[in-house]
Write a protein that binds this DNA or RNA. Structure first.
Lengths: 214, 214
DNA sequence: TAGATTGTTAATCGATTAACAATC
DNA sequence: TAGATTGTTAATCGATTAACAATC
């Protein structure tokens, strides 16, 4: 039944729409036209209408879109209320920050476990969870059936743990390790976050700006 | 003189090439053809050749590319050795993690200052830097001329601090705040990192996978 | 030289933008 | 009804892929 056909470019814009609509709603804006929204978001009205029409007609001719209704619909599409159980591997600096900083519950997930291979970290509290030792992973997965995992581990460990987690039923990876995780099977999805790449892109921009100046 | 014409899609792939070439070099691979590299990176050989040729002919017909030479060249293009002075605003959880975790020096930057509005954080050591109070920002910028800033602050503060920093000469922003910073003038560049958006994209993928299954 | 693989041009594909008829 | 703005089709633009002549 599903809209398998919606392009990735469109999907990746949905969270941004969701954010802007949230802001508008908070400010008390009731309705908005694609043109007005396009100005706020620095894109074209055409694109907004095209994007939204991938999922159905959310607007009304002559009126525009109802802000909170549209936000709700996009939230529905993204599945922000679906509460998929997710676990986090690697309770280092980055792992702890992600665990406490990311509002999983507002974004379609429920963080139910944090794991680390270092026994010294076992029992340490992060938010309302206690770090468990990675040895417990298999049993925990059998008992709690998480479907997603955040990887905050060194790149050397990524490939192996991803494979292991797949055998425990994990279907989605949010990968912060410095390694390009690839979804071999189509029943596993990967979102690689490469902060370093983002930073280097910024360096390029800054340097080429300087070059042009001269 | 500069290659202003190189498309953003190409630029965003450069750090990934750089990473893969680094791995290859580490493994002792001396030469690689676009076809071999394309298999490792899961893209087409055509694309690799097209991408690289935006910057000049780095290969040799009948041979391929010299791994470490190519890596060096791409590093040059990205400016990984350019050491642009950068400051970080917001020494909370996320700020501390970014400061310690990002290897700025390998990616074209030199982290020279960390700031927070909370006076209680002043003097706290992060890596080899001490947190300063945001009051000192202007003087610090005059004395040290940073050209870039990392924003690890709440979204409410982002617009204002970005404006202020621009008046102190900051040209590039790496923005982690939950706010879409926009570069009004073309002499300022922005790299918005929206981890929340990335996570929601993953939720969409996971949910639509479940939908299709049934 | 023969084989391999680049650099580069041409063809295809997909995504964005423009236009406009439908309709609230 | 008249004005506004969507939903949707068609046109344009850009990015990716294919093909092949140049050349190491």
């Amino acid at each position: 039944m599903s809209k398998n056909s919606v392009s990735n470019s469109v999907i990746r814009r949905l969270p941004r729409y969701y954010r802007f609509l949230g802001e508008l709603e908070k400010q008390g804006t009731v309705r908005i036209s694609s043109r007005e929204l396009s100005e706020k978001m620095a894109l074209t009205a055409s694109q907004i209408r095209q994007d939204l029409n991938c999922f159905g007609g959310f607007g009304q001719q002559g009126y525009g879109y109802n802000v909170s209704e549209l936000r709700e619909k996009i939230g529905e599409i993204l599945g922000v209320h679906s509460g998929n159980p997710i676990i986090l591997i690697g309770a280092g600096n980055l792992g702890r920050t992600i665990a406490t900083h990311m509002s999983f519950a507002e974004r379609g997930f429920r963080l139910i476990g944090i794991f680390d291979i270092d026994p010294k970290l076992s029992g340490v509290e992060i938010g309302d969870l206690k770090v468990r030792n990675s040895i417990e992973l298999e049993r925990f997965c059998i008992e709690n059936s998480p479907t997603a995992a955040v990887l905050c581990i060194p790149k050397e460990a990524a490939a192996e743990i991803a494979k292991r987690l797949q055998s425990y039923g994990i279907k989605a990876f949010w990968n912060f390790s410095h390694f390009d995780l690839r979804s071999e099977n189509s029943d596993v999805i990967v979102e690689n976050v490469h902060l370093g790449d983002s930073l280097m892109t910024l360096a390029y921009g800054l340097n080429s700006m300087n070059d042009t100046e001269k």
